[in-house]
Design a protein around this nucleic acid. Structure first.
Lengths: 145, 145
DNA sequence: CTTGACCTTCCCATCATGGGAGACCCTATC
DNA sequence: GATAGGGTCTCCCATGATGGGAAGGTCAAG
């Protein structure tokens, strides 16, 4: 199996396969006489593992660790779980960060008429004068009703 | 005001101020005789605008557009609102993507004993044999009860 | 005059992904 | 045997936003 077949079989594209090899995420693969990379069934399996892990948002570094455990038949599932839980926490933090942005933006957007006139609470909110936007929504940033 | 003061006043750090200038996000700023950048009150205001927009997750490109509208007294608030709504949609898409990852991971994690033994549904789930993990949770991926 | 705090530009690194160039390799068809 | 096409190789560059660090100029206080 050449790299093109490996890409199709694993769902990881060629560029990425070479990249993963170059950074040592996957071991150096066998080469045939012409210098082409040759993939075994097992290599494909590894690539597919990486792909799934990436799709779940694991970083290369985390995947490195996961693969070490994957190959280690003496591992404890607790180690794997810790990595996964750590990643869940990262995801959660990111989600909350984005949700907070969205919340703020939705508030501004809901205050904006969205018509032909230039008056715009969104721009006001982005300008220094946050009070202007807050006031529009009846929210008092410094607890002053 | 030199760049250090501008950074403190606007909350945008020096590196970023220079970067924003280099990519044309903010216009070239005045220089004093010694070549130091000199910031006016207005420049600070602009920087603070950029900072707030960044904090809401707007890309530089979007901020570019927002600032153009900001300066345009003939703008329609609809244009601003469209950009903001577009960004909300992006945020929402990202949130959903991350939430889906989290959901899947939480499922796997909940199936994992997290003890000293090597058996690990998380690794099984990342391996090709997805059925193994699904089966553990009583979920049938191909609608086969 | 030195010290220390500023400021300048320039280069490099991040993370994961990909585009593209230029050079080989192999197979099929003419 | 020539040529066309598709596959592969390596190498360089780019992304977006951020920042580290080097080497050197400037200024005010001691």
């Amino acid at each position: 199996m050449n790299i093109g077949d490996a890409a199709r079989a694993s769902g990881v594209n060629q560029k990425m396969i070479r990249y993963y090899e170059s950074i040592g995420l996957i071991g150096d693969v066998a080469r045939s006489a012409n210098g082409y990379r040759t993939y075994t069934h097992n290599d494909i399996h590894t690539l597919a593992f990486v792909r799934r892990a990436r799709r779940l948002g694991f970083s290369i570094e985390q995947i490195q660790a996961l693969m070490t455990l994957w190959r280690d038949k003496e591992r404890s599932s607790a180690e794997v779980k810790a990595i996964a839980q750590g990643h869940i926490d990262e995801l959660q933090a990111k989600i909350e960060e984005l949700a907070e942005m969205r919340r703020t933006l939705e508030h501004l957007v809901s205050c904006c008429a969205g018509d032909d006139r230039p008056d715009c609470p969104i721009l006001d909110g982005l300008s220094a004068n946050v009070d202007a936007a807050s006031a529009l929504a009846g929210v008092s940033p410094r607890g002053h009703p």
